[in-house]
Simulated scan of single mutants.
Amino acid sequence: MVTRNAPEASDTQAPSADPPASPLAERAARLRAFNRFYTHRIGATRQDYQDSPYTLAEMRILYELAHRDGATLSSLSHELGLDAGYLSRTLKRFTQQGLVAKWQSKADHRQMLLTLTKAGREAFAPFDVRSQQQAESLLAALPEAGQTELIAHLAQAEALLTGSRTDVELRTHRPGDMGWVIEAHARLYAQEYGFNGEFELMVAEICAHFLKHFDPERERCWIVERAGQRLGCAFVVQKSKAVAQLRCVLLEPAARGLGLGRRLVNEAIGFARDCGYREMVLQTNDCLHAARALYEQAGFTLKSEEQHERFGVKLVGQEWVLNLDGRK
């Protein structure tokens, strides 16, 4: 009698499943999914983009030529990431159609500069208007706060991908800023901590008092702004001749993680020192973990804390203090 050897374990096991994707691969897949969603949403995959006789790439070339005084073949190829051969053939066709003109650069006779002709601008203008209207239509479907948040997130994405932070501005307050400060605090604290309208009232009172009693030599409000969008704020107000108070430090979600909170706090501390204050104080609540860490990093120490029920939730209120003149 012949017996068969028992099968190896590998002979009886089902094929193993694919290994789990790495976090980077999952994020890349999500980014690709968004690209597919957005290009489909704006009709970029259609041959007749914006119901025009031009492809998306051709429309992009026309846009660049319409918004600059002169461009070269090499500069367009580099900035648009287009193959020089494809770009040259497209420009030749546009020139034959009377849409593009060429002339010799006075600075470098080897360079030929490109621009749209009058006919080219007239041909492109309706599609430029249509693209603007499409963008406005997408935004109009959102509430104003949603529009602001979307634009801020897009600006953050651009800054992250380009490594640029130069478009972020810290400026002093202007008319209309206090309304945003109140709205942003009420909206974010309701979303993130469950605060009720009592908190909005308190911020409104802080802003009203600041405007009514503002001393430009001893007080300051900073607004964080990028691409025309307000993203954050901080106040230094005079509590006494020797004591400054840091108030209303806030960043929109799209502005977090970029070092702007630290920049705001350091700016406030430097201003208070320059004004001759000996001490800076602030009041916060223990649930604001990121803010507390920021204050500790800046040198503030916890002076006192007390449980209370305010703004519709149970909280532990805290007072922090920073010595500004080096004295103990």
Rank of each mutant, 00 (worst) to 15 (best):
G81W: 06
A71R: 05
A71G: 02
L116M: 13
S77C: 03
L87R: 03
A66L: 04
D83A: 10
K102R: 14
Y86H: 03
V100M: 06
Q97F: 01
R89P: 00
R89E: 07
S105G: 04
R89I: 01
P126E: 12
K106D: 11
S77L: 05
F94S: 00
K102G: 03
Q104K: 06
S131A: 11
R130E: 12
L116F: 14
F124H: 12
Q111V: 13
G98Q: 02
E122D: 12
T90F: 00
A125M: 11
S88D: 05
T90W: 01
L116Q: 01
L73V: 01
S131T: 10
L113R: 06
S131N: 11
T72F: 02
G85M: 09
K118F: 13
A123Q: 12
K118S: 15
S131M: 13
T72V: 01
Q97T: 04
M112E: 14
H67A: 05
G120F: 09
T72Y: 05
R68P: 00
H67N: 13
T72K: 06
G98K: 04
L113H: 05
H78K: 11
S74D: 09
S74G: 01
F124N: 02
E122M: 10
D108E: 10
R110G: 14
A123R: 08
T117A: 15
K106N: 02
F94A: 00
G85R: 13
S74W: 06
